[in-house]
């Protein structure tokens, strides 16, 4: 059984149909990239999977290990193992990254029937994970995303992902606003999380992220449909030739 299965998914925002029949299967261990020009429904797809308000699913299914994801509230989806790395991570003033991480981790542990993490154990874990990702430990003492640079925000997303160890991670334009050094750090973080029982859905506009996070499959999204699928070489072709021919074909 696929880890995440999207079946003939239709979704609209404010009455306007954005996704028009998406079908996708992510097997454990796989990295899928979704590419496409702006305004074709890439972010809609990630928001619908994560359960953000304001998106109406009109048809189709999303299954995690065969379970109906669309029937779950956003927080239940998260605890079931779906993680969304945000394109624009949200500032939470006055809440330290550390307090935020701890609350999120404890929510997950509660789901697993485990007791709340002990304060010392938590600090040890954060220390290990920040070191592993090459991040300054002091970052966790700052209010989450407040005054963070673009690169810091994306690193904080990867740190959260590392702590929460999701089954399926969706990266929504994680490369946007990153310089080449930050892109490398973030990609290395993601790569260190690749494992045989985890799947990634990497959403991006540009091919350059895929130089660092090498996908098993690449899909082209245009006008709310997947219009082409292939291996990593498809990304290179898109880089060279642009999206024009797919847009025309889909229109």
């Amino acid at each position: 059984m696929a880890l995440l299965e999207i079946k003939n998914l239709y979704a609209s925002v404010a009455g306007k149909e954005i996704l028009k029949g998406i079908t996708l299967k992510l097997q454990p261990g796989e990295v899928h990239a979704i590419m496409g020009p702006n305004g074709t429904g890439k972010s809609t797809l990630s928001n619908v999977i994560a359960g953000r308000d304001g998106y109406e699913v009109t048809k189709g299914e999303v299954l995690l290990d065969g379970e109906d994801v669309l029937a779950m509230a956003a927080d239940e989806r998260a605890r079931a193992g779906i993680f969304l790395a945000f394109q624009y991570p949200v500032e939470i003033p006055g809440v330290t990254t550390s307090a935020f991480l701890k609350t999120a981790l404890n929510a997950k542990r509660r789901q697993e029937g485990k007791p709340e993490i002990d304060a010392m154990e938590f600090l040890k874990l954060v220390k290990a994970k920040t070191a592993q990702l090459g991040m300054p430990y002091d970052m966790i003492k700052r209010a989450l995303n407040v005054g963070f640079s673009g690169g810091e925000k994306k690193r904080a997303e990867v740190l959260q992902m590392t702590m929460l160890e999701p089954r399926v991670a969706i990266l929504d334009e994680t490369d946007s606003g990153l310089d080449i050094d930050a892109l490398r750090v973030v990609s290395e973080g993601v790569n260190s999380l690749r494992s045989p029982d985890r799947a990634f859905l990497v959403i991006t506009h540009y091919q350059r992220l895929l130089d660092y996070i090498v996908p098993d499959h690449v899909h082209v999204l245009a006008h709310g449909r997947i219009v082409a699928s292939g291996g990593k070489e498809l990304a290179l072709e898109l880089e060279a030739e642009g999206y024009a021919k797919y847009l025309n074909a889909a229109a």
Binding site: A74, D75, G94, V95, F100, T103, A107, Q160
Partner: peptide, 27 residues
């Protein structure tokens, strides 16, 4: 709504999210 969704996407219930955000505000 963005703050709430962000917290809930990390597994917190809505009430946990409100509590966390408000506590940050009052810190």
């Amino acid at each position: 709504d963005d703050q709430l969704f962000y917290c809930m996407q990390r597994g917190m219930t809505q009430e946990e999210a409100v509590s966390l955000i408000v506590n940050g505000f009052c810190k």
